[in-house]
Nucleic acid binder design. Structure first.
Lengths: 97, 97
DNA sequence: TTTTGACTTGACAATACTCGACAAATATAC
DNA sequence: GTATATTTGTCGAGTATTGTCAAGTCAAAA
């Protein structure tokens, strides 16, 4: 998801991990893990990444969030029900505001 | 969501918070917070709760998970896109297995 | 109006997690 | 072979979460 995406983008731009990690001011080992999905980036890092990789920030953030959600429901049965409940309650909540 | 649900169920059964919290072996203050949504229960607690409240375990777990997902995407714009991405990737992943 | 019991809240302590750093291992190219 | 890029494991520091305690409100009973 997020991981594969940034790998792809990086390779498309022919950049090295260490170039990215330097720009993000993070240890290369850490960036490597992020690209593998072993670690989760922080929001600001994602934002900066979008810039570096020259891709849409919003879209990248969505993938990043999707990963986080997947971590919670991915293995669960009834995962889809859960997603529906959430979708539903978002609609409801936003109507109130 | 989860919070309101367990409160409702408890009241329906005419139980006191301290009866629940005793059965769950937790401080009553903590249970109170959970019932308010200030704190998140752990999985085993949810399972035990379903039993105590005489309700469907699966369903209660779904609400509990929904809360957690909501915590992640609730405030985000594009939340629905995120949910769709996740739903999609669940389908995909499960096909592979 | 005191008292009692149920519930709530805030501040703190104890735990559990995550991040980032570093070293070492593995791959890939030259 | 060397050199560079990537990957992996582990550890401490920092962060966040969970649980405890004491003090609080509120409503109904005495």
């Amino acid at each position: 998801m997020f991981a594969e995406k940034i790998r792809q983008l990086r390779e498309d731009k022919q950049l090295l991990q260490r170039q990215i990690s330097a720009a993000l001011e993070m240890d290369n080992a850490l960036y490597c893990k992020i690209e593998h999905g072993d670690r989760i980036a922080r929001r600001e890092q994602v934002i900066k990444l979008a810039e570096l990789l020259d891709t849409d920030q919003e879209e990248l953030l969505k993938l990043w969030l999707a990963d986080k959600v997947y971590d919670i429901v991915g293995e669960e049965d009834g995962a889809n029900d859960v997603l529906n409940i959430v979708a539903e309650s978002i609609v409801e909540y936003r109507r109130m505001k």
